[in-house]
Structure formats: C-alpha cells, structure tokens
Design a protein around this nucleic acid. Structure first.
Lengths: 353, 353
DNA sequence: AGCCGATTTGGTAGCGCTACCATTTCTTTA
DNA sequence: TAAAGAAATGGTAGCGCTACCAAATCGGCT
C-alpha cells in the first residue's frame, strides 16, 4: 500500500510520473477498459454487478485514488463548491460553515472557501479566482454584491446561492431571513416591556447591521420614541470590550437609557458586563437584548434576550439546495425565508418601577 | 468581457468547449508560443520585457484566467494547501484559520480545508482525499495522529506542518506551544494566590485538554494539594452552559472549592455566570481562570485570568513555514514553540480572608 | 572574424480523466 | 425466428496546461 517513488521499469516511456496508480492501471488489473472503470466509479449502476466487483477489488488492491484535477479538466466541471463569507472572526459564520459541511453529507464535493473581509472588491476578485476553477456551485453572503460581482454571478454558469438575507432580486437562489424584521421585533418587545428610552448599539455596520438598525428605527418611530441621540454606531469590528465602551458612551450622553438593543451578542455581553461593573441593575434599570442568540446568551446571568437566527440551518440548506440544483432538480422556491425567533429571557423582564 | 456560450465557427473541431479563452488564445493574440505565455505568467523574469508587455495586454484583452486544474494535471502539483482542523465550532480554530489566510499574503495558493470532528479515522480519510489532489503542503492539528495517518503524512511528498502543539517527534515541521505547561502555569498562579482547593473543569477532553489537565495535576501534586474529587471532566463539547453545570456539580461535591482552573474560556464564563447566579463572590470566595484568552475575558466583570495562546500567530506562521518549504528554502527550525502568556486579571485576585 | 556559452523562445508529448461515438451483447416483440 | 431496440462495454480524441528538449538569438572573448 506504500506509494513508489519511481515507476517500475516496465513503463519507462512516461517522462513525468506521479508515482500513483491511474485509472488504466485499475482497468488493466480488472481486465476491462478504462472508461468502464470511470463509469463504475461515478455511477456504479451503469455497469454490471460482476464488473463492479472486479473493479472494486482492483481499486482496493492498488489503493487507487481518483485525480480530481484530471476529472475537472476532462469534464469542464470541478467538484468544488465555492463559498464566500465576509469574516472568519465572527462566529456567526463559523455556524454557517458548520452547516455547510454537514449539508454536504456523503457527497464528494469539496468546499473551497474565501474570506472577503467585508469588501466588495475583494469579493469580486475572489469570485474571479473561483470561477477559474469551474466550480459546481457558488455560495455567497448577503445580497449587496457590487455590480461587477453581480454580473460575474449571473454569468457564472453554475447554481448560485445567496445566504444570510432574503430580498426580491435573487441572482439564482437565496436563503436567509429579514434582518430588518429581526431588529424590529426585538425593539417592539423592549417597547412592550414598558421601556421608552431604548438605545441602539451597533458595530461594523455592514449592510445587515444597517438593516437591523432600520428595523429598530422603524419600531421606535412607530411608537413615537425615536431619538437620534439614542443610536450609537461604529465601523470598528464588534467585540465585548467595544460593547462596554459604546454603552458607557451612550449612557453619558443619555443618562436615562432604560433599554439597549444590540446589533449582536458580543456587544450585548459587553453591555451586560459594563452594567455589572457600574452597578447598573439588569433588567431593573436597563433591559438588554442581543442578536443571533449564541449559546452564551442563555448561560449569562441574567440570561440575555436575543433574536435566534438560523445560521447553521442556512448553511446546511444552502448546500442541499446547491446539490439539488447541480443534480438538475427543478428548484421549487428561489427565495427561502427561514425566519428567526425572539428568545425572551431575564435581561428584558418588565421594569417594575 | 462577457464569456461566450459557444465557440466561434473558426474552431469547430473542439467538441467540448469550456467557452473561455485558453493559453494558446493568448499566445495567438500576442504572437508568441503558448509555452512562453505560460512562463510569463509563472515567472515574468524569464521572458523579455517586450514580450511580457504584449502578453499582459493580450491577457487583459481576453479576460484570461489560468485553469488551475490543467496546471495541476500537467505539473503533478496543485497550488493547494490542505488544512485539517478538528472542529469548526471552537473559535480557537477560527483564529487559526484567520492566521492561515493572512499568512498566505499575495500567494496564489488556495486553502482546502477539512473538519476531522476530533476523529482520527476521519482525519485519515480526509488525508487520503487531500493527497489525491497532490497538495503543495499539508497543515494538520495536533501531534496525536493515528499510525495510518502518520504514515500517510510521512509519505505525503510535500511539506507537512503540525500545529497547536509541540513535541519531540515532528513528521516534518511543528509549531505550537505546550498545553501541559499552560495548564501548569495557570494552576501555579492560583496556588500562589493562596488558594488550596482548586478544582479543574474540562469538557471535550481531546489530547490537548488532557495535557492541560496533566499540567494542573502536576502543579497540584507538587504543592501537595491534589485531590481526585477536585477534577470534573466530560467528553461533551464545551459551552458556557456546560461550564455552569459542571461547576455546580463540582461545588455540590466539594463545597469548599476556592479556585477553578477551566479547560477553556467558554467554561470559565459559564463558571462566572453560575457564581453570579448563586451569589458566590469572585474572586472573594472563588478564583476563576480560563484558557486561550479570548477577547471576552478582558471585558468580563470581573475580568477573567486566562492563558493567552498564540492561535492567530500559529496559523500565520504555519503557512509562512509551508510556503518557504514549498519554495525550497532550507528549514532552520523544525519545531517552533511559540509559548503562551499568563494574563492575570481580577478573577484571581488574592483571596483576603 | 570566429567560436563558445548564456539567454530567450518554440515544438512536442504527455499529465489522468471523460465526452462522444462505435461496437458488442442481451432482450423484447411481431 | 428474425428484426429491432435496449443495455453494457470499449476506442479515441481531446480538456488546458507544463516538462523536456531543441533551436534560435545574443553578446563576449580570443
């Protein structure tokens, strides 16, 4: 089972040897044509049971592994699904990636993945690189591609799934939820607990963050509670430390804040820690809500209200949709809204003053 | 710049057209041989300035993108670095991955990455799949490969970097730190603050976790403080909720616990939350320490002592080492110990009773 | 001027696989 | 029983690139 460094003397004509058995080695050993071996490997049902067995035995005996490069070259299609995500630090995308891997199941597809760092230019560049490999499908984050990226996707010649958000204008398929509605729902909930001076704290402020903010603003305006000075945002990447800082800033500007809608869970934890540190009672004086509902929200003390987003499920189903489209199955629904769930916890219990 | 769906009538002999320009299309346009274009693209210094310019212009005009599959097939080497990590949920590996991507810099290498789910069998399977692509290098996590995986790595025929840990017996190169020493250092620190009944809480208990525990045990034994009933572990994956649960268990078994060494930061946060919930003073009655030092440790209240591990740097330098080895540079050091740093914070301030 | 080596360029033959057809063998039906 | 159709198998010619060698070009030196 060890790989030889040199080809045996029987095959001296080959100038460059990879040193590994090829399809025709398997075919010779099994006594069939190489194309038959290729078929047996790709779709066993297309060869007779007897040959299938002989071929399997030969494959095992030689320790044969298919060369995906040669396959991709010959079939003008590689078994690669390209995935573009904007960040690796953000553990939202760790969940999505986990879903993607699990959605693959027994498929032999490989995931090739790229990090756009929240940059549309970088997304376009990576898209070109990926397209060079003739991927079987592409999964991209968000719905705000640059015009150039949009054009590349429309001419990609393979299924494309946009994930994390839903919108009216899918390139091909789309799966996610409405960030605006999420921001709206959590804000309404805080308003419903009797709070009035509800702040919004946001970091990074990518398109999805901005839509959450829009949902917050809408709810506040509807209730006649909107006030510019309640909103604190920064382009910096989000962190718990930043959450503490932004909250401290907000509080010094608006001392009578009685609620905080955070753009994500890291910030919410930072706000909670800042409250602990400064003796601000939660939920007594200030109610706190996060976004995404990471595991830690339920464990925190007090446990933190959050919008549970279907991150894992988005990843998993994006791949399932892509695989179905690759297999040529008709697409029933182009846009799939997986929704979200408002998880109400201790941090937003009604204030009883 | 749009890609045609059908080849022009001048080339009807080609049965299957990828619809995209090829090297020889570029060569024809530039009026040179295709091999010269290949050279100009791979190593511009090997063609004259004039040709280089003509070729660059042709590439741009046609929107040419190199086909990596054809290149890999012809050169028996793909521009892929395979990365095997045990988990995607764990944000330790998110940092490593980020470092890996950044370490790539301007290189055209692609990262192909696989998730072993902490299973040696799965690692071996993925290794076979990866090796089928003739990767330029492999990066694997840990030093506890199965004998089969070890053999595959030794015969991989490409640079191999083992990351996260250091040991005596590298397959090729190795970069990480000593988990045992880390566990030892944080335990000694807690002992140094005057605590005596220091518990260990561990989840997952993969090889690295077990070495941290070994470091804890060693320090406790040295101080004559080791007690079996102080150690609580579970094979379950780690989480803050689990940290709360395990601490509650430990406390009911050993009510006079005055310190907790946690296997990682999630557990430590869970312990902190449980203390808040049950009114256990931190650090007054119980000192808490984590492992890895995620950003949140500094933001928490009280801020949590932790071992800062060079996760990002491990990823970045692993790739730099791999790229150097691919380029044929002599390897100066096979084993690189990046160490760790004990970050002392509020959660382990000396108890003053 | 003539020769030698270094440098730049090109031709050819694959890398290992699959698409496309041709061929053979096995069923089915009038 | 023969013809027609279906199913299983094989041969051949690339997919787009690069390794290997050969050829051409260019100085630098005696």
């Amino acid at each position: 089972m060890t790989f030889e460094t040199e080809r045996p003397a029987t095959k001296p004509k080959s100038r460059r040897a990879s040193g590994r058995p090829t399809l025709s080695d398997v075919a010779n050993l099994a006594g069939v044509g190489s194309i038959t071996v290729s078929r047996a490997l790709r779709d066993p049902s297309r060869v007779s049971a007897e040959l299938r067995e002989r071929i399997d035995a030969a494959v095992k005996q030689l320790g044969y592994v298919l060369n995906p490069n040669a396959r991709a070259l010959a079939s003008v299609r590689s078994d690669v699904i390209g995935v573009l995500i904007p960040s690796m630090t953000n553990n939202v995308f760790a969940d999505v990636l986990r879903g993607i891997h699990d959605g693959l199941g027994a498929s032999t597809m490989q995931i090739q993945f790229g990090n756009t760092h929240y940059s549309a230019d970088e997304e376009e560049r990576l898209l070109r690189v990926f397209l060079g490999q003739h991927p079987s499908a592409l999964i991209v984050s968000g719905i705000d591609q640059s015009p150039g990226a949009r054009e590349l996707l429309e001419n990609a010649g393979c299924p494309v799934v946009q994930i994390m958000e839903v919108g009216d204008d899918p390139v091909d398929m789309m799966i996610g939820f409405s960030h605006r509605d999420g921001g709206n729902a959590v804000t309404r909930h805080l308003i419903g607990t009797g709070r009035r001076r509800i702040a919004f704290i946001g970091a990074r402020m990518d398109p999805r963050s901005r839509r959450r903010l829009a949902g917050y603003s809408e709810a506040m305006r509807e209730a006649g509670l909107f006030d510019d000075c309640l909103v604190t945002t920064t382009p910096q990447p989000s962190s718990a430390t930043l959450g503490s800082e932004l909250f401290t800033q907000a509080l010094s500007r608006v001392p009578d804040i009685d609620g905080v809608v955070c753009n994500n869970d890291d910030l919410a934890l930072g706000v909670l820690f800042a409250c602990h540190r400064h003796g601000v009672e939660v939920p007594g004086r200030v109610g706190i809500a996060g976004f995404n509902d990471h595991e830690m929200m339920a464990a925190a003390f007090p446990s933190i209200t959050s919008i549970r987003t279907p991150r894992y499920e988005i990843g998993r189903r994006a791949v399932v949709m892509a695989l179905a489209a690759i297999a040529g199955a008709p697409v029933s629904e182009r846009v799939l809204d997986l929704g979200f769930e408002l998880k109400i916890r201790e941090s937003t219990a009604p204030s009883v003053e």
